[in-house]
Design a protein around this nucleic acid. Structure first.
Length: 572
RNA sequence: CGGGGCGUAGCGCAGUCCGGUAGCGCGCCAGCUUUGGGAGCUGGAUGUCGUCGGUUCGAAUCCGACCGCCCCGACCA
């Protein structure tokens, strides 16, 4: 590809719209262009990277025994009614209608379609197991699209679906995908962690997320360095901690006037105490009934954990009015002592003595609270988000470490949820009708691309892994006016082409500095410079994007030399 | 949905407070010089100042509504 006429345009300044390094770089390098919030065009270079990710996925999916198909993005409403997800997905789906006023949705995912198709297709246990996949555009009406390709309204996804005769057999299919995912992300040059995850609205009983590690990631995860435990922070358990005793822990509880002291910060400053000495009391509506939930003042409540502990279908934080009715005090002064509500306390509060709580009365807090002496606790449970330093739930000596990641893949064991909705059954060896057991497996293809940038850049631009680079080789011809230089460049390009490698050839009438800057920005891993200076030595200059050093290689050797670098790199 | 910020040339921005008919840098076009890390000089083109309405002799600037983009998010017990 010749740079002078293919319309690749780079930007010198960071676009105002972008915040994340990867987002800025993709825009600056001309890989993507925004049409509107959450909607992006893949420009020539970006599209080539996307195709490389897709190709890696196809190879590993096929190797794992999955078969590619392509389903419609546009789907009739009825199949979403059958699985009961038209309501569940709610505003997360784009809903449209055709000219007959028939209601349709733009598919955010394809469990419904695949199960509908497969329910007619599969009749006998002899046809199982099967795993089908597609690479396709998905549509989700995100609450807040952000960070370019990271969270878009329209994005490219690889989704796979497995069908098995039973639950144990489904684990085999699950493991095959799990292993394939590991290979895919490794080949994409990503550093990932595999974490236990919640199944959420998908349903099912086993689930892992593949997280590309990045400080800018939207997801939190916790890992134990001593054992293999790793989980999404939404789900991560914590090991038991030592009970906390604060000063004056044998004294009687006593009300103290705390005018206007509502926040943890205000109260702990007022009492010259650490925030964890204050027991935060939050009022929730659990299935429309008020409950209280307690956590240490320095912790954050995990609503999902609380809902599970309470056994509630719906859980929302109470509004000011409800708090006033339930506690007799305005927001900021709730406490467990004397509270006539079911009280759920975080497990770390067990044995808390000498603590501070709200007084259930305006401008009042209690000191010297012994939680189990001064309040009636319905249950102690793991309610708060885990944090760095919390004990590992699986091993004795481990301390959890928090990190952030980008969710690039997610695998679910679904079970029979969709099979039931779509009557997807087969006859087993005894001639009995059985429900197929399903799994589903997603990779954010376009997100993976951006995650790769987020993990591989420096102050000059992108450093593409060899496997994803839009072109593995970029060649700069520094004297485009010089016939001899151009002839040699063309020969080099032709030689690589006959080896199957297209070269990004910068033959623009630009000064050398511009070409160097753009080459660094675009981030092709191998750079060849052909110039008068190099030709005096009968050589081309070879430099890797990842290295500071360059060397002159005789023109006659450059092809072989570069191909060996590529081949070596691509084997990893 | 709530809170905050921003919309002025392809990109990055000034001008808005205090109304007088639009500017800077980069990029683009032409010419000359230059040619290994975002060149210099000269000349030039490019704008419904987000949209609609209002106030005014006069609006990028003041007022109102709307639209778009970005960031944060029940922060509170």
């Amino acid at each position: 590809m010749r740079l002078s006429k293919d319309g690749v345009s780079t930007l010198r300044d960071d676009p105002q719209e972008a915040e994340l390094a990867s987002h800025k770089l993709m825009l600056r390098a001309g890989m993507i262009k925004k049409l509107s919030s959450g909607l992006y065009t893949f420009m020539p270079l970006g599209l080539r990277v996307l195709r490389n990710v897709e190709q890696i996925i196809r190879e590993e999916m096929n190797r794992a025994g999955a078969v590619e198909i392509l389903m419609p993005a546009l789907q009739p409403r009825e199949i979403w009614d059958r699985s009961n997800r038209y309501e569940v997905m709610g505003d997360g789906m784009f809903k449209i209608s055709d000219r007959q006023h028939r209601e349709m949705v733009l598919g955010p995912t394809h469990e419904e379609v695949i199960t509908e198709i497969i329910s007619n297709e599969i009749k006998s246990y002899r046809q199982l197991p099967r795993t089908l996949y597609q690479i396709q555009t998905k549509y989700r009406d995100e609450i807040r699209p952000r960070f370019g390709l990271m969270r878009a309204k329209e994005f490219i996804m690889k989704d796979a679906y497995s069908f098995d005769v039973g639950w144990d057999e489904a684990d085999t299919s699950y493991d095959a995908m799990y292993n394939a995912y590991g290979k895919i992300f490794r080949r994409c040059g990503l550093r990932t962690k595999i974490v236990e995850a919640d199944t959420g609205p998908m349903g099912g009983n086993r689930s892992h997320e593949f997280m590309a590690l990045a400080d800018a990631g939207e997801d939190g995860l916790l890992e134990c360095p001593s054992c293999s435990y790793a989980a999404n922070v939404e789900r991560a358990e914590r090991g038991a901690a030592e009970p906390k005793l604060f000063p004056d822990n044998e004294k009687e509880a006593e009300p103290v006037s705390t005018p206007g002291m509502r926040t943890v910060e205000e109260v702990s400053t007022f009492f010259k105490s650490s925030p964890d000495r204050l027991i935060k009391t939050l009022i929730y509506l659990a299935d429309d009934k008020p409950i209280a939930a307690l956590i240490p003042g320095d912790r954050t409540m995990n609503d999902m954990k609380l809902a599970r502990a309470v056994g509630a279908e719906t859980l929302i934080l109470a509004n000011e009015q409800t708090v006033l009715e339930a506690t007799g005090a305005p927001v900021g002064f709730a406490g467990p002592s004397g509270l006539e509500l079911p009280i759920y306390a975080d497990m770390t509060l067990k044995g808390y003595k000498g603590a501070l709580t709200g007084g259930n009365q305006a401008d009042t807090h209690f000191i010297n609270i012994d939680l189990e002496r001064d309040a009636t606790i319905e249950a102690f449970a793991d309610l708060a988000f885990g944090e760095t330093g919390d004990p590992c739930p699986r091993c004795n000596d481990g301390k959890l470490v928090a990190m952030r990641g980008i969710e690039v893949g997610h695998v679910f064991k679904l079970g029979t949820k969709y099979a039931k909705s779509f009557d997807a059954t087969f006859l087993d060896a005894e001639g009995k009708e059985q429900l197929v057991v399903m799994g589903c497996y997603g990779i954010g293809v376009s997100r993976t691309l951006q995650a790769a940038v987020e993990q591989n850049y420096d102050k000059h631009g992108i450093l593409w892994p060899m496997s994803l680079a839009p072109y593995k080789i970029t060649m700069l011809g520094l004297q485009p006016d010089d016939e001899e230089t151009m002839r040699i460049c063309d020969n080099i390009v032709d030689a690589f082409r006959s080896s199957g490698e297209e070269v990004l050839f910068d033959e623009r009438d630009e000064r050398p500095g511009v070409k160097f800057k753009d080459a660094d920005l675009v981030g092709c891993p191998i750079r060849i410079v052909v110039s008068k200076r190099s030709l005096e030595k009968g050589a081309a200059e070879l430099k890797l994007r990842s290295s500071e050093d360059s060397e002159f290689v005789p023109i006659a050797d450059i092809h072989e030399r570069v191909m060996s670098i590529i081949n070596k790199e691509m084997q990893n």
